[in-house]
Design a protein around this nucleic acid. Structure first.
Lengths: 220, 220
DNA sequence: CCTACCGATCGGTAGG
DNA sequence: CCTACCGATCGGTAGG
């Protein structure tokens, strides 16, 4: 509960590196170091593939020290999951957009989303771990905060209903997120064996497809 | 190597339940039981979250017996990965399609793909485990078999170039797979907290979006 | 294919 | 926040 409230409070605020070391007591710094260390190891090895000893070593403290901040391994994962959840970064980016027409919003939003995902490959691993190793059990209470904030972003699209095809807005939003996320997904999942066939430049084709897919008419 | 050859050989053949017990020596039956048992546990708990003892117990043999068939835990996962890879089921389904126009192919292919994915939720978990816990390292040699077979399927689309927008065919294929996979993904990932908002009936809207996205004109 | 065992490592804790 | 320790469980093997 504390977690979710804290998440909501800092929801729009993206911390710069300078903030991280400021205003934190020594204990809070250690706590942050543990979370960061755990995050790095979890995303590269999975939850069960990471030991508390590895986390302690990586954070430069003794094993026992971790339990001064977290009751057990799962609570530590939960804190990592909240602290590094993709919505924390993606929602503020989308909220800061100033485009006024739905077409510009789609074009610009797609590029921003892909850019953010490519800068943070850990997002994908974190979500996968939550899905497979925790059966998605932590996502619900996070969704209670994220979904309302997300829908608020699209609630005042003045020209949406005149330019969109006859498709419910929630479906359009789902298609937008899914389609461009799949652009990222197909790229990273094939990057080791598709020798550059999955090109980032293809994003403009994806945007074209989506625009023609949802809009009655497309400019340019 | 043996694995990949065997995979190619049985690639178009979907085994019925009756085949599974036929033509197998006692040792091969045990081997199959171990693979099935390991698969069920891996997809529900992850690789590192599953112990060899659990697998043995589930397969009704002693722990040591597993090592009569598999050198170690990772080799066992590799065999599970090959035996249960989604392409094994999806490619034959797509290969059996008889639609002749690209529009019918998209409509029918999308529905078949979603139906197959919804019948086999283990696909998603298996791919996630491979991605996070094995860094996608087993996917390459499988791709060497799957990709050529997959591209063969779309190589003889007579009306593609006249009906498609000016978008490269590989991009259209990538968009098709990604878009409809994302339909499935957004559904399962939100199903615990989006109280039915992500509806299977929305698939027809997705098909509409995709058709308008890639075709110059859409019937119906 | 099972029994019985190996050393190593796991998550977690008491006590200071 | 560290040292030293706990019982349990891990992947894997020898020998029959």
């Amino acid at each position: 509960m504390i977690i979710v409230a804290e998440y909501e409070r800092t929801f729009v605020h993206i911390k710069g590196p300078e903030d991280v070391l400021m205003d934190l007591s020594k204990g809070e710094i250690t706590r942050e170091k543990i979370i960061d260390s755990a995050h790095a190891l979890f995303v590269s090895q999975g939850y069960h593939g990471t030991s508390m000893r590895q986390i302690a070593l990586n954070a430069n403290i003794a094993l026992g020290g971790i339990y001064n901040h977290f009751a057990n391994k799962e609570e530590l994962f939960r804190e990592v999951f909240y602290a590094y959840h993709p919505s924390r970064e993606l929602l503020p980016i989308l909220a800061a957009m100033e485009e006024t027409t739905i077409e510009d919003l789609i074009r610009s939003g797609a590029r921003k989303m892909i850019k953010a995902l490519e800068a943070r490959p850990d997002f994908l691993n974190l979500m996968f771990i939550e899905y497979v190793e925790f059966n998605n059990q932590h996502s619900k209470q996070l969704a209670d905060v994220v979904v309302p904030n997300g829908t608020k972003l699209v609630s005042h699209l003045a020209d949406a209903h005149v330019k969109l095809r006859d498709i419910p807005l929630p479906v359009v939003i789902r298609a937008f997120i899914g389609f461009f996320f799949s652009f990222y997904l197909t790229k990273v999942i094939t990057q080791d064996w598709a020798d550059g066939k999955m090109n980032t430049a293809d994003l403009e084709y994806f945007i074209t497809i989506f625009l023609h897919g949802v809009l009655k008419t497309v400019d340019g």
